[in-house]
Amino acid sequence: MTETILIIDDEQDVLDFLSHILGYTYKIFTAPEAGKAQQLLDEEIIHLIISDVMMPGMNGFELCQLIKSNIAYSHIPIILLTSKNTHQAHIEGLQVGADAYIQKPFSVDLLLSQIQNLLKNRIKIKDHFASDPFAHIQVPVRSKKDELFLQQLDEYINAHMKEPNIDFDALAEHLFMSRATFYRKITALMSLSPKEFVDMTKLKKAAALMSENRLTLPEIIKLTGFSSEAGFSRSFEAQYKMSPEAYYASLQEGE
């Protein structure tokens, strides 16, 4: 998936310039003010936001605070751009939850480095979570709201672990979200579809049960909601690059 960036600035020249330099690598959305930005956030999967601070109506500080306080968007890293060259302005940016704060006129190389680092860290965290059977679900969180979101998500999946097909409408409702908002949140936060995330969580549970060595493999497969041993084995090997049998062997070697 090509990563998406939302650029918010009331100066068209700035929108055009940033769209030009970033458009070769990322999918770009632009907004001249906060209202349009909120509309795009409700319609699109956004991986990172670049926002000017000084704008008519809601300024960048207020918009950043709004985004970081809304569970639907709180996971999105935000870079604030400002001509305010004061320590107080910098502190205010950090207080409202900005992930980076860059003064105008800014270095393009500095901006590109900040974008790359913020997006790279998200991918690294996701890859670690995906490849390690014991990496905790809370690894990727950026805020208390995201921590609570993932905790509630984990609790729901575990309560419905035996079900072969989890009802995503009911899951979204449990999290007080529409299905579309839930899909955007999971996809942007974890780079996984809801189904992929649920399947990964089930495989992690299966790996944990296997490490305890108290249940047979058929019992574990039933407890984690897989319909067949062959299907479970295919999913397990695709996720962890080894068969369940090889995983059992690796556990015994580690004793």
Score class of each variant (00 low, 15 high):
1 M>I: 01
2 T>S: 03
4 T>E: 02
8 I>E: 00
10 D>R: 05
13 D>G: 05
14 V>A: 05
21 I>R: 07
22 L>C: 02
27 K>C: 02
28 I>W: 08
35 G>F: 02
36 K>Q: 06
36 K>M: 08
37 A>W: 04
38 Q>V: 10
39 Q>D: 01
40 L>N: 01
40 L>Q: 00
47 H>G: 10
47 H>M: 12
48 L>P: 04
49 I>Q: 00
53 V>M: 05
56 P>F: 09
64 C>E: 01
71 I>F: 14
73 Y>P: 01
73 Y>D: 10
76 I>N: 04
76 I>P: 00
78 I>F: 06
83 S>T: 10
85 N>M: 15
88 Q>P: 15
89 A>S: 15
90 H>T: 07
93 G>P: 04
94 L>A: 07
96 V>L: 04
97 G>P: 01
98 A>K: 14
100 A>P: 09
102 I>Q: 03
103 Q>S: 13
110 L>S: 09
110 L>F: 08
110 L>K: 13
125 I>D: 14
130 A>H: 13
130 A>D: 14
135 A>G: 10
135 A>I: 11
137 I>C: 07
139 V>R: 11
139 V>W: 08
146 D>E: 14
147 E>M: 06
149 F>W: 08
149 F>P: 12
153 L>V: 02
154 D>N: 11
154 D>F: 09
155 E>L: 11
156 Y>R: 12
156 Y>P: 15
156 Y>D: 08
157 I>F: 06
160 H>V: 03
161 M>L: 12
161 M>P: 04
165 N>F: 05
165 N>I: 11
166 I>M: 08
179 R>Y: 00
187 T>E: 14
194 P>W: 00
195 K>P: 00
201 T>K: 12
202 K>M: 09
210 M>F: 14
212 E>L: 13
212 E>I: 12
214 R>M: 06
220 I>G: 08
227 S>V: 13
228 S>C: 15
230 A>N: 13
233 S>W: 04
234 R>N: 09
234 R>L: 09
238 A>M: 07
241 K>F: 12
245 E>T: 12
248 Y>N: 07
249 A>Q: 14
253 E>K: 08
254 G>I: 02
254 G>P: 05
